[in-house]
Nucleic acid binder design. Structure first.
Lengths: 241, 241
DNA sequence: GAGCGGATTTTGATGACTCAAAATAAGAAT
DNA sequence: ATTCTTATTTTGAGTCATCAAAATCCGCTC
């Protein structure tokens, strides 16, 4: 079995490759993992020996298919756990990321199946991040964000790309949570600002950087079906979704 | 923070001291922890440095108050997790022990409180083991077992002292689960056997060793109040209690 | 094309946990 | 009392993941 360290390296490599396709530089990996560069090099060599990554010295590192599958497995556990914590245990979605960081390494397959079933085989976690399937598949992700989508068109927040509790608390307060219907009223390049109007009332102006953290989907698009585990959500203290 | 290794040593020391009051011998500890004796000695020295145990070379080891509190904390997490897995996730009580062995080390205090609340502040886990309080208290435990209790008197199974899945599956099948009402019909010292009659019908003959693994309480005694989290149990797939 | 600078790799060490096997102590047996 | 037995402790070594700092490489500037 992969150690939890290895699981973390693979997970972060996957997320980085998802964000920036191509090879991941050592310095970048070291930063992500909060280790010194030498440590990253050493670990990557070990991962390469285990055939979990392709490693070209001084060029960078890239997941192999095996490494990617393992990473997706970890991500599946992470995201299902997050959803469980929010919907069943009633934790705040701004704090479940930290908890899941630990739990993702100690959930057995059997338990994971139970969680999946209890939640009704959900497709996305509380942040809108897609939950990989047991088979290792992932939903394609819409690349549109509040920065790139057309002005004046009703869209739905699909995913929030920042897991920082501070940021998520702001998201919560402003109502820009996954599932919320909004439209971009205006963008001001000079002011570096994006003004967003919420369908259910209210508006919020964001910096371009902040707006770019919200992925959106055309209103009425697929895959925003009944939130998984809705029946349970009624009684359990499920604050947000 | 105590490493998971340390948490495990402390937990096992606590359980051993509960079973056999007094100092724990090194060889015994080594066996319990599945390490060679030298490893146990080394770890115990480290624990002594951290003031978690009292250690007298060649005499044995004993938890300090601090060590005991830490052990109880781990045990609290372990047992609440077990109950959560059975009542909310619908896992079989014969298998939750293994799962909880891992989970007990990664549950935050906040999450633990949520679990406790969701389950309705239960006093015992699915095996009947008492759940230590957040303050570090534990229920006194009845010392009566199917071997020692009076013949022909109705008692209730309070606790099953063996966590082996195989054994627990037998317990399940025979109906001698915590909460079951039974009476000991006869004991045969020669045959080394104990015959138990279940109130709800059926009977079962056990070896003395097996019978000794069932702690019992006089029928109608305190502390067998409404199983914690009963409301939830109705809808969730809570098989056993 | 010689040199510079930043990223990367190497090297040497450390801490936590473990094993194997040799050394030791303490109690039991003769 | 001397020896034997057996549990315990010590010693030496290995693995995993890490850091600090020295060595190396590559592309870029002048």
């Amino acid at each position: 079995m992969a150690s939890r360290t290895i699981e973390n390296y693979l997970k972060q490599l996957y997320l980085e490759q998802e964000a920036v396709p191509g090879e991941v530089a050592m310095g970048r990996l070291a930063t992500i993992m909060s280790v010194v560069p030498g440590t990253a090099t050493a670990m990557v060599k070990a991962l390469a020996d285990a055939r979990l990554v392709h490693y070209s010295p001084r060029a960078g590192v890239r997941l192999t298919e095996a490494g990617k599958q393992l990473a997706l497995h970890v991500l599946r556990r992470h995201r299902l756990v997050e959803l469980l914590l929010v919907k069943v245990l009633g934790l705040d979605w701004s704090e479940v990321h930290e908890e899941a960081e630990e739990l993702e390494h100690v959930i057995s397959d059997k338990l994971l199946d139970r969680i999946d079933a209890l939640l009704g085989y959900p497709e996305v976690d509380p942040h809108g991040d897609p939950i990989p399937t047991a088979g290792g598949g992932v939903q394609a992700v819409s690349a549109e964000t509040l920065v790139s989508c057309p002005l004046g068109i009703r869209v739905r927040i699909a995913r929030v790309l920042d897991q920082e509790p501070r940021f998520l608390q702001f998201v919560e307060a402003s109502g820009l949570v996954p599932g919320a219907r909004v439209e971009v009223a205006e963008r001001d390049a000079q002011a570096d600002a994006v003004r967003v109007v919420l369908a259910r009332g209210g508006e919020q102006t964001l910096s371009t950087a902040a707006a770019g953290k919200f992925q959106v989907r055309a209103e009425g698009a697929e895959s925003m079906e009944a939130p998984a585990g809705a029946s349970l959500a009624e009684e359990a203290p499920a604050h947000h979704f």
